[in-house]
Design a protein around this nucleic acid. Structure first.
Length: 645
RNA sequence: GCUAAUGUAGCUCAGUUGGCUAGAGCAGCUGAUUUGUAAUCAGCCGGUCGGGGGUUCGAGUCCCUUUAUUAGCACCA
C-alpha cells in the first residue's frame, strides 16, 4: 500500500503502483474528467503515472497554470502530427506551450492561411479519432537512432546536448513520434476548440544566426465559451488598434520620410500635453523638481557612462567640426552633469529631478510598431539622488505614486523584481544590498511581486511595473531601477554629516515610461473613448436644422468660453448622420442635439457616448456636470469588455 | 536586421491567365432637402497604380532592385 496525501492535508491508502488517474476516479468521476495533469511530490506527470511509494498529489485542471501548460503542449503535438501527415517533407523543431496557447516550429516552406485551414481540418480529424499519447523511455543511442533515421536533425541536435544521466522520453501519437519530456494528455480527443492563429518565421533556438524556421501559433480550450471569449478579445483589440484609431480620431501620423518618428496632430498633442499636465501636478505634490537637458551631447559623455561601449549600435550619431555628437538614448548622463554643478549636502537629499526627455534610439526597422515602438519618444524620467538609508522609503513613495496615477486611468498592474544578470558590473555585496533594498520595499508595499531571476539591468536590479489594460493585456511601462554604475563612473557625491564626500545612491524611474507608448496603450485601453478630461473633443453641438444654427452657435460659444473643447456640426445633414459621426466614429463623450425645444426652454436632452440619451439638463446643470466630470477625472463607462456569456 | 505578406483616389477596397480612356463605396465640393438621436438625394472633383530599373508590340498585373507598412522572430540599455 502507498499513502497518498492531498492538498487539503487528508490522506488515503491505495494499492502500490496505482495510476494517478485511478486515484482521481476513486475520489469522483467529475474530478477524473476535469483532470488534465497531476503533480506527484511537486513534479507534474502523466495521468497514468504509477505511484509506487508514499506521495503527495495535486490534480490539475485547465484553470491551473500546470493544467493549461499540459493541455496546450499536447495541442502542439497534435499540430505537429497534422503537419507531418500533410507535409511529409517538413522537419520538426520544438513546440512548447506559451502564456496564451502554443506553437510548433517546422523547417518548411512558409505556411499560407489556406495551409492553416487545411491543417486545422487534419487536426480535427486527429482529435476525433481519439489517438493515445504513448510515452516511452529510451536510451540516448536509441533516441538518436530514431530521429537520425527520420532525418530529424533538430531533434538529434537536442538529444546530443541533453546532460548525461537525463531520462530521455518520447511521446508517440499516431505515426508521429516526438522527443519530449512531457507530460501529456492521455488522448487527443481531450483537446477541444482548437484554432490556428498565425504563422511566420522564427529562428531555430531564437538565435538570428541560425536557420529561419516556420512557426505556427495556435490556441485551444476545453470550453467553447473560452475560445469565444479569446476570439472576442482579439477582435476587440483589432477594433481598438491605436494605429487605426489614431487616424480616425486625428491623433497622430507617420511618414515614410522618417520611419518610427510620430507626428502629433492637434488632437493627439492635446492628449499628450494633458498627460504631462497631470504628471506635473502629481509630481509637484511629491516634491519633484523638473529640469531639461539637451538632446545632443558629445561622445565623451557616453564613453564615461558606458553607453558607447555597450549600446552604440542603438545610438544616432552626428558629426560637427570633427567632433562626434550623440542623440541621447537616455537622460541620465545629462542630468548627472546638472547634479554635479553644485555640492550637495546630506540634508538636501533626496533630490528628485524629473525630466520629460526626448530620447532617440535606433531600433531595428522590423521592431517599429505604431506608437508602441518608435525611434524617438519622450520619457517621463526622474532621477532620485539619495543616501543609502533612504532607498526603501523612496521606492515606496514611487510605488504609491504609480498606484495613484495608474488608477486614474483604470489600469491594474503587478510588480516584477529583476535581479542580477550574468553580464553585470559591481560587487556581490553592492548587488546584495541593492536587491535587498528593493525587495524590502516590495514586501512592505504588500501586493506581492514576481521574481525575474537574472533579468536586471547590467548596472543594477529593477522593479518593473506591468500594466493590465481593459483587454487583459500586459504592458511594461513604469520601471524603478537602482543604479550602482553611474554614481561610480561619474563620481557623484554628497557631503555627509562628517563633512566627507560620500557616493550617492541613484534611482532611475518612469511612470508612463514613454509618453507615446503610454498614449498608444490608453487609446486601446479606452477604445478611443477617452475620459472627459483627456478627450480632445468633449462635446459636439448638433443643430436639428439651419433654423437653429444661431442658437446652437450661442451654446457653442458659451461652452468654449468656459474652456470646453467643442465641435459644432452645422452641416445640412440629418441628425442621425451627425450622431453617427460624432458618436460612432469620433467617439465624442457628449452630444447636444439642439432644435426648437431647446431654443424655447434652454433645457437640453443630452446624449452620452455608449449610453445614449441620459436625460434633460438645464445649461448650468450640464456645465457643472461636465466640470465635475473633468475635475474628478471620472473614468468613462463601458470601456471594459463585458463577458456575460 | 531576418522570414513572409502587403502597398491601386484623402480613407476602405475591387481590378480575372499582361490587352481598349484604371473601377466602387465613404470622405470632399456643388446643388436640392431643413431634417429630433448610428448613413437624404443628385451631380461633380479626385489616382498613372510606393520609388527606380527591366522583360514585352503592350505592365497595376511578370522579373530585378529599393522603400514603407503589417505579422512573427531577434532586439528592447
Amino acid at each position: 500500500m502507498v499513502k497518498i496525501t492531498f492538498p487539503d492535508g487528508n490522506s488515503r491508502e491505495f494499492d502500490e503502483g496505482i495510476k494517478a488517474i485511478e486515484v482521481a476516479k476513486n475520489i469522483s468521476k467529475s474530478l477524473a474528467k476535469a483532470t488534465i495533469a497531476v503533480s506527484v511530490d511537486g513534479k507534474v506527470v502523466d495521468l497514468d503515472h504509477q505511484i509506487n511509494s508514499d506521495a503527495s498529489i495535486i490534480f490539475h485542471n485547465f484553470s491551473d497554470k500546470e493544467g493549461k501548460e499540459v493541455y496546450w503542449h499536447s495541442s502542439s503535438h497534435i499540430l505537429a502530427h497534422a503537419v507531418t501527415n500533410l507535409y511529409p517533407d517538413v522537419k520538426v523543431a520544438i513546440g512548447p506551450a506559451i502564456a496564451q496557447g502554443f506553437y510548433y516550429d517546422f523547417e518548411a516552406e512558409p505556411f499560407t492561411d489556406e495551409d492553416l485551414r487545411k491543417i486545422e481540418k487534419e487536426i480535427s480529424r486527429i482529435i476525433k479519432s481519439g489517438i493515445k499519447f504513448e510515452r516511452a523511455e529510451v536510451s540516448r543511442e536509441e533516441a538518436l537512432k530514431i530521429f537520425d533515421e527520420k532525418g530529424e536533425i533538430y531533434k538529434s541536435e537536442l538529444i546530443r546536448e541533453l546532460p548525461e544521466g537525463e531520462v530521455i522520453s518520447t511521446y508517440t501519437i499516431g505515426k508521429f513520434i516526438d522527443l519530449c519530456r512531457g507530460p501529456h494528455l492521455q488522448n487527443s480527443s481531450k483537446v477541444k476548440n482548437l484554432r490556428l492563429l498565425t504563422s511566420s518565421g522564427a529562428y531555430w533556438r531564437g538565435n538570428s544566426d541560425n536557420t529561419m524556421l516556420q512557426r505556427i501559433y495556435g490556441i485551444s480550450f476545453p470550453d467553447k465559451e473560452e475560445l469565444e471569449k479569446f476570439l472576442l478579445i482579439r477582435a476587440e483589440a483589432e477594433k481598438r488598434n491605436h494605429k487605426k484609431l489614431g487616424k480616425e480620431l486625428n491623433l497622430f501620423s507617420f511618414h515614410e520620410e522618417t520611419p518610427g518618428n510620430p507626428f502629433f496632430k492637434n488632437n493627439g498633442l492635446f492628449v499628450f500635453n494633458t498627460l504631462l499636465d497631470y504628471w506635473r501636478e502629481e509630481h509637484t505634490k511629491e516634491s519633484y523638481t523638473e529640469i531639461k537637458t539637451p538632446i545632443m551631447l558629445k561622445r565623451v559623455l557616453w564613453e564615461t557612462s558606458g553607453h558607447w561601449e555597450n549600446y552604440s549600435e542603438n545610438m544616432f550619431t552626428s558629426e560637427v567640426e570633427n567632433e562626434q555628437y550623440i542623440l541621447k538614448p537616455m537622460n541620465c548622463p545629462g542630468g548627472i552633469l546638472m547634479y554635479k554643478e553644485d555640492l550637495h549636502s546630506y540634508r538636501e537629499l533626496p533630490i528628485k529631478a524629473g525630466e520629460i526627455g526626448l530620447v532617440h534610439r535606433n531600433e531595428y526597422s522590423g521592431a517599429l510598431s505604431g506608437l508602441f515602438r518608435v525611434r524617438s519618444f519622450h520619457q517621463d524620467d526622474a532621477h532620485i539622488y539619495m543616501r543609502k538609508d533612504q532607498i526603501k522609503k523612496e521606492i515606496l513613495d514611487v510605488l504609491h505614486l504609480v498606484d495613484r496615477m495608474y488608477s486614474t486611468f483604470g489600469l491594474k498592474y503587478h510588480l516584477e523584481l529583476s535581479t542580477r544578470p550574468e553580464k553585470s558590473i559591481g560587487t556581490d555585496e553592492a548587488w546584495e544590498n541593492a536587491t535587498h533594498g528593493l525587495r524590502d520595499a516590495l514586501v512592505e508595499y504588500g501586493i506581492g511581486y514576481e521574481l525575474n531571476e537574472g533579468d536586471g539591468a547590467f548596472y543594477g536590479p529593477k522593479i518593473d511595473i506591468m500594466i493590465h489594460d481593459a483587454l487583459e493585456r500586459v504592458w511594461q511601462c513604469g520601471t524603478i531601477q537602482l543604479d550602482m554604475n553611474l554614481p561610480e563612473r561619474f563620481d557623484i557625491n554628497y557631503i555627509n554629516e562628517n563633512s566627507e564626500k560620500e557616493k550617492c545612491v541613484m534611482i532611475h524611474r518612469t511612470i508612463y515610461g514613454s509618453i507615446e507608448r503610454f498614449m498608444g496603450i490608453l487609446i486601446e485601453h479606452f477604445g478611443g473613448f477617452f475620459p472627459l478630461w483627456l478627450a480632445p473633443v468633449q462635446v459636439t453641438i448638433i443643430p436639428v436644422s439651419d433654423k437653429f444654427n444661431d442658437y446652437a452657435r450661442s451654446v457653442y460659444d458659451k461652452l468654449v468660453s468656459l474652456g470646453f473643447r467643442v465641435d459644432y456640426d452645422n452641416r445640412s445633414e440629418k441628425v442621425g448622420y451627425k450622431i453617427r459621426e460624432a458618436d460612432g466614429i469620433k467617439k465624442t463623450p457628449y452630444m447636444l442635439v439642439i432644435g426648437e425645444k431647446e431654443e424655447g426652454t434652454n433645457i437640453f436632452t443630452v446624449r452620452q457616448h455608449k449610453k445614449g440619451d441620459i436625460g434633460e439638463f438645464g445649461l448650468d446643470d450640464l456645465i457643472s456636470r461636465l466640470q465635475e466630470e473633468v475635475s474628478s477625472k471620472k473614468l468613462p463607462d463601458g470601456y471594459k469588455l463585458e463577458f456575460n456569456k
